Amino acid sequence: MTIRVDEDEQNRWTVLRISGELDLVTSPLIRRRVHDAVAAGRHELVLDLAGVRFCDSSGVGVLVAARRLMRSCGGHLRMVLPARGAEDGAHVNRVLGALGVRRLFEVYEDLPAALDDSAEPLRTAAPAC
């Protein structure tokens, strides 16, 4: 597998730091980790995707499913996606924007902003490819 997931608890938030490639092979692991968090009663989830360097349609599907799951249990999902630059997560931001689904997510440029309940999610469009 070409993905790594580190889990951390920060105040009320469960943070899954994901790095590597989010694709057909690795997306079931992310799906399982999200389901495990919900099953353990953790309904405040941050997916830190700043370290994801590739995301295909399977990865997008897992992200959309995670959003749906968190909404169905009354939880909250936030995502960390750098807007531009050389950071790996900027690729995911572009993919979500190109597919028209980025607007579905609460997106933050870094983890401190995602954990700050007074911070507003980014509302700007994803950068052009």
Score class of each variant (00 low, 15 high):
H43S: 07
R12E: 10
V38P: 09
T14L: 04
D8Y: 07
G41E: 04
L16H: 10
H35E: 15
V34L: 02
S27H: 14
S27G: 06
R17D: 07
R17Q: 08
D8K: 04
E44G: 00
L22P: 10
R31Q: 06
N11A: 13
E21R: 07
T14R: 04
S19D: 12
S19T: 13
L24H: 13
E9N: 15
E7Q: 13
I30L: 13
D6G: 08
P28W: 06
G41M: 07
A39G: 08
E44Y: 04
E7P: 08
N11T: 03
V15S: 14
I30D: 01
A40L: 00
P28R: 00
T14I: 02
D8G: 06
Q10F: 08
R33V: 09
P28E: 01
E7L: 12
E9P: 15
D36H: 09
R17V: 09
L22R: 12
H43M: 10
L16P: 12
Q10A: 15
P28S: 01
R32C: 03
A40S: 11
V38M: 05
H43N: 06
V15H: 06
T14C: 10
A37C: 08
P28H: 01
E7M: 06
W13A: 02
R12S: 10
G41Y: 05
W13L: 09
R32M: 02
V15R: 14
R12M: 06
H43K: 11
V34W: 09
R32Q: 10
V38A: 03
